[in-house]
Amino acid sequence: MRVKSIAFHSINYVLFGSFAFICIYPFYYLLLVSVSNSDAVSSGLVVLWPSGFNVEAYKRVFVYKGITEAFFISVSRALAGTVVTLFFSSMFAYVLTKKELFGRVFMYRSTVFALYISAGLIPWFITMKQLGLADNYLLYILPTAISPFLLILIKTYLEQISPHLEESAMMDGAGYFTVFMWIMMPVSVPVLAAVGVFSAVTQWNSWQDNFYLVNNPHLQTIQLILINFLREADAFSNPANMNDLLANASRQRISPFSLKTTIAVVSIVPVMLFYPFLQRYFVKGIMVGAIKG
């Protein structure tokens, strides 16, 4: 019995240990390549620690204006997009909990149905163009303002807050908007944190809107820049001087491979910085939703 138990635990630890390893190591490897000498990389010397440590690739990458610009576009859309989603989705969730709202059932059903319906690529593409959102920064933040999935998560949370809290504020003469902003939002922080994390990560990882509808070189996202670098062959979508950067780099004995991993590392840094914090809130939020639902 004891032997069996020890065997079970050992196998279990080995299984989870290896899976955890393959979940982290690839990212560590990207980091290693980005700071190592290119020749050492291609001869297989870079496995656990860097060889010929240098930050040349980073210097190269940051000189290229497109990347710093795209980095800030991505950061700003993550921030602005999250604020917009949090505000509109939770405001809508709040008013949808109010029986006295005119047309409540209709609006709620439309929101839930939105989970299952999708117009498809071309209709979406043409509609966005006609709304004037092509080559427009607002394309990044407005379409996600109401997220049906997140809205339902928030609404479920709001429904189990004691109504007395709201009633007493209303007695004191507060209106619905005041109650929403200064009472309901603050008490919903746990669920709003999860929703905020989800929307920030989604924003940071998005590139399709950029890919289909934004050509302006000053509005590129870091993800699309990374795609372009990973598939250098795609000459049409490439900013003209990307090829210069690649050519320059090879003259400096930095392989295109190092350059690509460097951009990949740059694109993951914000996620990694906040990850432990993100993960905790996110898992908590999902747990709350899962147990309730």
Binding site: V95, A114, P123
Partner: peptide
């Protein structure tokens, strides 16, 4: 009674939902 406020809060949200989920359905005619 505040019903106006409620509606005023709901309408912009509903407009956003319609604009980005239901309006593109018009494109099905393509």
């Amino acid at each position: 009674s505040g019903k106006a406020t409620l509606l005023l809060m709901a309408v912009p949200c509903f407009v956003l939902l319609v604009a980005f989920v239901y309006l593109p359905l018009w494109g099905w005619s393509i």
